[in-house]
Design a protein around this nucleic acid. Sequence first.
DNA 1: TCCTGTGAATTAGTTCACAGCG
DNA 2: CGCTGTGAACTAATTCACAGGA
Lengths: 211, 211
Amino acid sequence: MLARKIADSTVRRLAIYLRFLEEFEHQGAGTVSSEALAARAGTTSAQVRKDLSFFGSFGKRGLGYDVHALAVQLRTILGLTRRYHVILVGAGRLAGALVQYAEFGARGFDIVAAVDRDPAKIGTRWGDLVIGNVADLEKIVQREQIEIAILVAPADAAQALVDRLVSAGVSAILNFAPVQLHVPHGMDVKNVNLAVELETLSYALQHRGST
Amino acid sequence: MLARKIADSTVRRLAIYLRFLEEFEHQGAGTVSSEALAARAGTTSAQVRKDLSFFGSFGKRGLGYDVHALAVQLRTILGLTRRYHVILVGAGRLAGALVQYAEFGARGFDIVAAVDRDPAKIGTRWGDLVIGNVADLEKIVQREQIEIAILVAPADAAQALVDRLVSAGVSAILNFAPVQLHVPHGMDVKNVNLAVELETLSYALQHRGST
DNA sequence: TCCTGTGAATTAGTTCACAGCG
DNA sequence: CGCTGTGAACTAATTCACAGGA
């Protein structure tokens, strides 16, 4: 669909622009400048225009961007014009928090299954989601036509679970386990490591004052 | 303490190297090569050596790095040789998950307080943490000598809370609210947006096949 | 006139490649 | 000989600056 390889940083910013466009849309704004979007997103107007220019020319010179039309474009670019079935692999507290995370549903990500290996958890419910047995992982992935997995399992179990997810047909993984996952070419993995985020803060705290 | 400005990506990788060093240490390995570290961390040996070289020469040519000594160095660099008092601003499910997150404590981040605005939550306990009233935010920050805040509050409340945190003396914020926070120069803010992570995956899913 | 779209310039980050030390 | 440490080369990302259309 697209010639050039787009930087991850660009894709992230597009997702952020979309948030603010929706906010503007809600406030009834018809049009928005790259400058205004940049201010909200914490970047520069040149960056906004460059990011958008990889995908087309959506603005009107002298005017800016039509808020609604640009939102539609960004949803198309980001693949948010349809819904995705998501499984939670691991049913700990973090998984429980993610189930409730309204923003996922609002963006088209439906958490339709959760599994765990703890017999005490299997069969219990989170709203209308029944926690399944991890032994049935492949069956559940296929039955529910799951494309995305959120991995919130212990580090030592992670790779084996990923191998099973891959062979069951999952094509993207959001990984919260602090390990480097190995997946076949073409699969997409995104790592989130909350402890690492805190550590970059402690680094910054320590190296402050050199301003 | 350091002349050059170090890239965020470098600091993150150092935190990741530290994880694997501790694992190696646990397994009784005395020495490790940049190649072995890189394999675990999902990067290249040149990257590992370059990252470390910003801070000093920690290896022995022909041998590699002493696992324990390098771990000590990285903890020093990252500011992990002491403990930090952390407050959770917002006591929703995500906050509840973070309280339990063992890795935080293991790295020196002690969650010593949590506040919320919901009267139904105020006074309830999570382990030995009593949820306080957000009205007392400044008092709590000062009493507990808090340096880092984890902001897990609704987007519309976020900026006002940040202003209060800043004036109460907090110096770093890990922000889960999907807004761009404005803080005075010198303050450190790190944003985590889980919906954006999923959206980069849906982008990747959609633009697959051009390989 | 205003603000986009975009090549060009700049800056940042990564990889190469090899000298040099243990 | 093996593996680090590091300039130099390269690649990627951001910012500049301005031509050009509404």
